[in-house]
């Protein structure tokens, strides 16, 4: 009876040891997986940060481009307005000259 109890106990201990060994491997595996996950997470975080930075940079660039486009449009408008003013002034000058000429044709 004692013998069988001892046998059972030993088997149990052995089983526990065996089970304990399996747990260590698993633990190592889990630890490795954990490290891998951490690395991935870190990578993902880094990528996310990079993406965010890129997005921010793109936003800044877009805003900058928009400002430049707006400035260019403004400048073009100003130039067109100046050209129109110059054309109007030239036309006005020509009209004035014509009126003077017409007057000079009187007796």
């Amino acid at each position: 009876m004692k013998k069988s109890l001892l046998m059972i106990s030993m088997m149990l201990v052995f089983a526990i040891i065996l089970a304990g060994c399996a747990t260590t491997r698993d633990l190592e595996k889990v630890q490795a997986e954990g490290q891998q996950t951490s690395a991935k997470a870190e990578q993902a975080l880094k990528e996310a940060q990079q993406a965010k930075a890129a997005a921010e940079e793109a936003t800044i660039k877009a805003a900058d481009a928009a400002i430049r486009a707006e400035n260019a449009a403004k400048m073009a408008e100003e130039r067109a307005q100046a050209a129109e003013e110059r054309a109007n002034a030239a036309e006005e000058k020509a009209k004035k000259a014509d009126a003077l000429f017409e007057r000079s044709m009187k007796k």
Partner: peptide, 8 residues
């Protein structure tokens, strides 16, 4: 050059 103008 006054021909064709109202200048008389």
């Amino acid at each position: 050059a006054s021909i064709g103008l109202r200048a008389t």
